[in-house]
Design a protein around this nucleic acid. Sequence first.
DNA 1: ATTTATATGTAATGATATAACATATCAAGC
DNA 2: GCTTGATATGTTATATCATTACATATAAAT
Lengths: 161, 161
Amino acid sequence: MTKAHGFHQHDHAACISDALTKAEAYCAARKLQFTPVRRRTLEVLLAHHRSMGAYEVLSHLDASGFGAQPPVAYRALDFLVKHGFAHKVEAMNAYVACSHPGAQHVPAFLICRQCSTVQEAQIEPMQNGLGDAAQDAGFAIERAVVEAQGLCPLCQQSAPE
Amino acid sequence: MTKAHGFHQHDHAACISDALTKAEAYCAARKLQFTPVRRRTLEVLLAHHRSMGAYEVLSHLDASGFGAQPPVAYRALDFLVKHGFAHKVEAMNAYVACSHPGAQHVPAFLICRQCSTVQEAQIEPMQNGLGDAAQDAGFAIERAVVEAQGLCPLCQQSAPE
DNA sequence: ATTTATATGTAATGATATAACATATCAAGC
DNA sequence: GCTTGATATGTTATATCATTACATATAAAT
């Protein structure tokens, strides 16, 4: 079975189990607790393969027998983001599973304003002119995100304006 | 009188009146209505010279005799953002006056996680690797933001960790 | 086994943002 | 100037996103 990944198709089941296995290994290596809620949260993000609001994630967790209150989702999502398994799409107040787990990278998103699909793009860390600006200002960058909004290939056809 | 602009000092009064004059001229040229609320909203952002939440802006508008309900602030802010007089800092759900009004640019922000000061940096449009990624994906970028979080020069001293 | 740190569950609340609709003001054509 | 249509403002209500605080449970370290 294939499913849209960003604007492409791919083998969805393999992609999910692969990401879960990697997360498991990463956590084991660093003695991080990849607990049931955290695992389920990552599964939910991976299965949907699009950005999801915290409350949408929460409803799945609730349905899976975990707590039904917001902190349940926010804490799990924070964990995933902190360790690079997911990203927060700031422009949408939403979350996506990371498409390049393990890789040290500056996440960059292409966000379709029409269908809300988010594709994560790879960009070179610090090759974006921002590093220079930061250095000039004496600013120590800890984290950076790049977010582009526009129209995805599909929506360009249906909304050619 | 000088006041912090990003992490530097500058002539604050001149900077404000300059930005207002530019906005006025821009609107006049395009028959946009630079109404009292919109003007006051820009004044408020310029005067504070840091990112402000919509409700903080709203309280100033209220105090100035405008409406006290959220849409009053959100509409004025949307106008300013739409026409490039201000930017939304997505990672903070906050707004700042644009530091380079008139210039066609991709706004980039250096956001201090400790003191919340935001400095707008100049980066070259599309020289950030994102353009290539978008082209590959067939994605039409309409708007992009770059946001970096970290520690500003001052806070690096007080929080050397 | 005890202690300490970490994680989860839940209630309450805070912060951010929009929808919907009434009224007012502006801008253009007559 | 007056009418008309578009744009802007004011207000109520509500939707959406996120955190604080505290109790309980589980894991890890000695």
